[in-house]
Design a protein around this nucleic acid. Structure first.
Lengths: 119, 119
DNA sequence: CGCTAATAAGCATATATCTGCCTATTGACG
DNA sequence: CGTCAATAGGCAGATATATGCTTATTAGCG
């Protein structure tokens, strides 16, 4: 898709926003499959059939430093009788990146907006 | 299918014979997925699409005491970056049961045996 | 404004095990 | 010998993550 330099894709923003919400809770970590489930249930439409898109998005975010990951203790996964999870956490950079997207308006554009509002 | 009392199904015989061959090797254990792979590659035909049939056969054999299983150390699976395996081993009862059935090894069973031995 | 190179999305499949649900087969009994 | 009940088989999907391959889209440049 040839990404616009430094831009965030909608799926990436969705992941980060979900992750930021987690930061305020008791457990700041999440894992890929949980996100996939949310997206399937909430949006309905979005297929993510084999989850390939999602896992690659997570990988990209980690490479860019917006997410940090660690592998769950294998003993825990074993005790719960399921595959091991990779736990993600939104970094400070990740929060900042979402903030920046929240206000994509450049300074001049903002001024114009204020001007329009005042009139 | 309403099994004939005490009889062994062909898939069960195939598993046990493959497992008995393993007993003579350096590693007497095997896991379900390896068997499934052999069957897919060797036989071609047999679908075992979702492996449901195979895993249930393994379960039946264990319940009957013809197989014994243990879970692989989760640390090993983690180190090899794959899901944890359930390791099976043919018991003395398992060997006896195959003996009792006789040596009319079916073609599928032979092929499976060859396959595992080769790996 | 049109083209091309970059890359995200989608689909399939690998790794491993397991369960639910429905169908097909068959042993055993009347 | 036909019918019924038991159960094996097949399909689908859950749990988790990941890679390969092809297609579609688009940023950015000329």
């Amino acid at each position: 898709m040839k990404r616009k330099a430094g831009a965030l894709l909608s799926i990436e923003i969705a992941i980060l926003q979900a992750g930021i919400a987690m930061l305020r809770g008791s457990d700041p970590e999440f894992h890929g499959y949980a996100i996939a489930r949310e997206m399937r249930d909430q949006e309905g439409a979005r297929s993510l059939t084999a989850h390939g898109t999602l896992y690659r998005a997570l990988e990209r975010l980690e490479i860019r430093g917006l997410l940090a990951s660690r592998w769950e203790d294998p003993e825990i996964a074993a005790a719960e009788e399921r595959p091991r999870r990779r736990m993600y956490r939104v970094t400070a950079e990740g929060e900042a990146a979402v903030q920046a997207v929240g206000e994509p308006a450049t300074a001049p554009a903002k001024a114009l907006k204020r001007g329009l509002a005042a009139s």
